[in-house]
Amino acid sequence: MALRVSKVPGIGLMKGMWLTLRTLFKRPVTINYPKEKEIPVPRARGVIALDTEACTVCMLCARECPDWCIYIEGHKELQPPSKPGGRPRSRATLDRFDIDYALCMYCGICVEVCPFDALFWSPEYEYSEGSISAMLHDKERLTDWLATVPAPPPLEKN
């Protein structure tokens, strides 16, 4: 076994002490949260943002969520026809769209399966609450997160 262990007793102890002494005078690597903040990578799964305009209440996300923590209710609304004389269109409107972050396991399946690109990941992470019921984000709160969604990172070229 190749091992850089000295035969002379005490040398091993000295090496360790030299290492800690060296580190003592190096810059610390930790960040002084909350005075400084780390910037998460763009893909980081922090919180889910909802675009209510894009959502068609198809319920796919709610169905595919592994722990079923998305609650959606909606109804159909008749819209005026797009061209005069046409039939009135029916459009689905969201009544309720809640994600229970106390249950969510941040797997990202909902974002992935949404066929209309209505859900996005935002790397925002500062939304802890004192009570578990406050972790239920409603439609308005989810829409607010939309502003924090970053542009996707450029891809490796190879």
Partner: peptide
Amino acid sequence: KISAHMQSRIGPY
């Protein structure tokens, strides 16, 4: 403080 800096930490702040 010393322990923190020996571990690349900042320590109490």
